[in-house]
């Protein structure tokens, strides 16, 4: 069973890397850019067959290590 996890900075946390990417894209002539936020992406494969259990495990992984909940949010999707 495979899941994707996306970790992004919370809305009110400054994302200087995203800002620089945005500025650079604007310099390349990409207009009408409203906002860019940079994040992290994980693909996690489990041997479990029970989807509920597997989702719980991935959720636990996010809370314990993959995301720092003070500054980051995460989203889990089955893929």
């Amino acid at each position: 069973m495979k899941f994707s996890v996306t970790v992004t900075l919370k809305k009110d946390v400054l994302d200087p890397q995203g800002k620089v990417v945005q500025d650079t894209l604007q310099n390349l002539g990409m207009n009408n850019l409203k906002n860019i936020r940079q994040g992290k992406y994980f693909e996690i494969e489990l041997n479990d067959t029970d989807q509920n259990k597997a989702e719980k495990k991935v959720d636990d992984m996010c809370k314990k290590l993959l995301a720092n909940l003070i500054i980051e949010d995460y989203k889990v999707n089955k893929i």
Binding site: V13, L14, P16, Q17, V20, I70, I71
Partner: peptide
Amino acid sequence: TETGLLKGVLLRNQNL
């Protein structure tokens, strides 16, 4: 801060 012994977090320097 990652262990939780101290609260808060150290972000990337503002000037990158």
